[in-house]
Simulated assay, not measured.
Amino acid sequence: MSALDQLPGFRRRFRVTPGRGWVRSEVEDDYHHMTVILRHEAGVVTEVEPIMHRAPWTTCPGAPAQLRQTFTGVALEDFALRGEKTANCTHLHDLAVLAAAHAQDRAPLVYDILVSDPVEGRRRVELRRDGEPLLGWSDQDHRIVEPAELAGLGLFDQLRPWIDSLDPPRQEAARLLRWGAILAHGRVIPMERQSDASRMPPNCYSFQPPRKAQARRVGAIRDFSQGPAQPLDPYTPATAPAP
């Protein structure tokens, strides 16, 4: 077990479970717990089933209808090109794209993201695939300091060219890790500063006008770095959900 597991910080887990004619993708972290089930036939999605178990805004429950509109009838291979991410809940959208990418896999896939709380502005960030470390870096005030090949790049606005240079599996992992590291920043922002949706840029379903004026902060926040609980536990092996 890495020392990173022992540090307080942000935890995020994705699990993708493929089945015959369906695939389920799930995520849980401090602020979110969501599921997307895609049913597909001949490579085309016939039904999209989003579930919001835990979400941070009163307007979030409207997002599943938008996700169904975005992806129903779309070929699995075209999900990543479909766009419309900011019109959707970004987390449901990511789950749908992740599910489509792994719909033909033969075994479940688990990604774990761990981000330590900053100490004098410095954090450790790591992504594991099926328990094995795959990507990691250290950042200082959201600018990467390690590894050397990324040193000096800003987390928010300068990683895209590097991500685009990777092979597709590592691109997927790097995108998830970057977004997880950005979400982790919420642990050190006072709640009153992150609870006014009207000040947010229009980068997701709840922050679109005029919806952002109606959004109110709700939902439990969990700290998975304290105690034995882990995201997406307890685990129940997936079977094809009833139509």
Rank of each mutant, 00 (worst) to 15 (best):
E149G: 04
P231M: 07
Q140T: 13
S2T: 07
F156A: 14
Y235C: 03
I182P: 03
R13L: 04
V48M: 02
A220Q: 14
V44S: 13
R143Y: 09
S195E: 06
E47T: 14
T239L: 14
P190D: 01
P133W: 04
D117F: 02
G83A: 10
A215W: 04
M1V: 07
A184R: 08
H142T: 07
F224I: 00
C60K: 00
M200D: 03
T35R: 15
F224K: 00
A99I: 05
W22P: 10
L153R: 14
R143E: 14
Q208I: 03
R160G: 11
P56I: 08
A87I: 11
E126R: 15
T90D: 00
L109A: 06
R143S: 13
L109I: 06
R128D: 02
P228I: 06
R15N: 07
R122A: 10
T236G: 05
R199L: 14
S165D: 11
A151P: 01
R199N: 07
Q158M: 12
G180Y: 03
R187T: 05
S2F: 00
L150R: 01
F156N: 12
L232K: 01
A75E: 13
F79E: 11
P169T: 05
I37F: 03
A242T: 15
V23G: 11
V218H: 09
D30C: 15
D117T: 12
A75Q: 12
G131E: 01
H93P: 02
P147F: 06
C204M: 06
R106W: 07
Q230E: 11
N203F: 13
Q171P: 06
D167A: 15
G152N: 00
L150Y: 01
P168Y: 00
R178W: 03
V188T: 13
P8K: 03
H93W: 14
I182F: 06
G227D: 05
L150V: 02
R128M: 09
R82D: 10
A229M: 10
D139E: 13
R124F: 03
I51C: 07
S195A: 14
P108Q: 08
R216L: 11
V74E: 10
L177I: 06
A242F: 08
R128A: 08
R11L: 02
H40Y: 15
L232F: 03
R178V: 09
R54G: 09
I51F: 13
V125L: 09
M52Y: 07
